[in-house]
């Protein structure tokens, strides 16, 4: 019994320690972000990696999500003759919730894993030490560009995702379910407020920060060769995905 509490306690302590370290890294990253010079070349390269290269997956995910949303809400709404509101539901769900969350999860799987693996490999092959030895701060050189790229690119991805998701819903409703095109578009527009979009974009920024910070943290704290890199990568994806889902609830509740 005592052993159980011992185990439970150490788990809690480890969790708090780890969160504290991630927070510290986040604060340090922020501090280095505002210290010149800005490494534009590296930021642009990371933006390409995080953003441009993520577009295909995000697009495919969004169009199918929009399509399935239209199908499902149509099935439900028909039962109480509210088919006309399919467009509204698709648009609100995409913009407020599914666009940011699903993009966040996609990016954490694609980009977070890559960040953790790359920085982890650099750590175990002493490349991070080499940066220090060359009088260059690795946080400034490696983390800040990834952090800024994720922060600025996530909202863009989410806007794309929103648009494509809404188009997906439109296509299914109009071509498959025979909804009137004009009514669908009107229903989509009329009930959407700017606030909905802002909430989604705020989420996108927060998710970007979460992905970059957690993945870079895992990469920097990699120990023990190839196995360590594998573990760091897994941890980066699992932790950032969970954190995205949890923080998503709280952001929604706050903006309610």
């Amino acid at each position: 019994m005592l052993k159980f509490f011992d185990f439970l306690g150490s788990l809690v302590i480890r969790f708090i320690e780890e969160s504290g370290r991630i927070m510290l890294l986040f604060i340090k990253t922020l501090m280095w972000t505002f210290r010149p010079p800005l490494n534009l070349k590296n930021i642009v390269r990371q933006m390409e990696e995080v953003g441009v290269n993520s577009i295909p997956v995000v697009l495919i995910m969004s169009i199918f999500t929009g399509m399935v949303l239209a199908l499902q809400s149509y099935t439900g709404f028909r039962r109480f003759n509210a088919e006309a509101f399919v467009g509204t539901v698709v648009a609100l769900s995409m913009v407020r919730e599914l666009g940011p969350v699903l993009s966040g999860l996609m990016v954490s799987g694609r980009v977070g894993a890559a960040m953790a693996a790359e920085l982890g490999t650099m750590q175990v092959t002493e490349q991070v030490d080499a940066l220090y030895a060359l009088a260059t701060n690795p946080i400034k050189f490696l983390i800040v560009p990834r952090f800024l790229a994720a922060l600025f690119v996530m909202p863009v991805l989410v806007i794309l995702s929103d648009i494509i998701g809404i188009i997906g819903g439109y296509l299914v409703s109009v071509t498959l379910l025979g909804t009137n095109s004009t009514i669908y578009i009107k229903r989509t527009w009329d009930y959407m407020k700017l606030d909905d979009i802002y909430t989604g974009l705020l989420k996108a920024c927060v998710f970007g920060i979460i992905i970059a910070t957690i993945s870079c943290y895992q990469g920097f704290n990699t120990r023990g060769g190839a196995e360590g890199v594998g573990k760091a990568t897994t941890k980066a994806v699992v932790l950032s995905s969970l954190t995205i889902l949890i923080s998503n609830y709280f952001i929604t509740a706050m903006m309610f």
Binding site: T121, M122, T125, E126, Q127, D129, A130, A133
Partner: peptide
């Protein structure tokens, strides 16, 4: 300082 690392530690 200049430092030569055991396996080079070149930025790949």
């Amino acid at each position: 300082f200049g430092m030569l690392f055991q396996f080079g530690a070149l930025f790949d």
